[in-house]
Computed example of a mutant assay.
Amino acid sequence: MKTEARRRQTRRKPALWGVPTGLILLSLTPILGGAMRLAELAGGAEITSHNERFFESPVPVSLHIISATVYSLLGAFQFVPALRGRRWHRIAGRILVPAGLAAALSGLWMAVFYSHSADSGAALLFLRLIIGFSMVSSIVLGLFYAIRRRDLVRHSAWMTRAYAIGAAAGTEALIIIGPEILAGQPGIRFQVLITGAAAVINVTVAEYVIHRRARAAARIETEQLATEALVEPTYVGRHILNHR
Results as ranks from 00 to 15, higher is better:
23 L>I: 03
24 I>L: 03
26 L>G: 03
62 S>D: 02
152 L>R: 10
29 T>E: 02
71 Y>K: 03
88 W>H: 07
214 A>C: 04
150 R>P: 10
120 S>F: 15
86 R>Y: 08
209 V>L: 14
12 R>Q: 13
131 I>L: 03
35 A>N: 00
223 E>R: 08
105 L>E: 01
145 Y>M: 08
202 N>W: 01
155 H>R: 04
231 V>L: 12
55 F>Y: 15
163 Y>E: 01
141 L>Q: 04
187 G>Q: 01
244 R>N: 04
135 M>S: 01
142 G>R: 00
76 A>Y: 12
9 Q>R: 08
238 R>L: 07
90 R>H: 14
117 S>G: 12
205 V>M: 09
210 I>R: 06
73 L>Q: 03
73 L>M: 12
103 A>N: 00
236 V>N: 03
210 I>N: 10
205 V>S: 02
203 V>Y: 09
130 I>E: 08
86 R>C: 12
77 F>A: 15
12 R>S: 14
168 A>K: 06
133 F>R: 03
228 E>G: 05
84 R>C: 08
229 A>E: 13
30 P>K: 06
204 T>Y: 00
126 F>C: 09
74 L>H: 04
127 L>Y: 06
208 Y>C: 09
230 L>E: 15
57 S>V: 08
231 V>A: 13
28 L>V: 05
3 T>G: 05
242 N>M: 10
46 E>Q: 12
213 R>P: 13
240 I>N: 08
4 E>Q: 02
154 R>V: 13
65 I>V: 08
82 A>V: 07
117 S>R: 07
41 L>G: 14
136 V>Q: 00
121 G>R: 11
220 I>G: 07
83 L>M: 09
37 R>E: 05
206 A>M: 03
125 L>Y: 05
109 W>G: 01
194 I>R: 03
180 E>V: 15
52 E>C: 11
144 F>G: 04
197 A>V: 11
230 L>A: 15
160 T>Q: 03
159 M>G: 07
51 N>F: 06
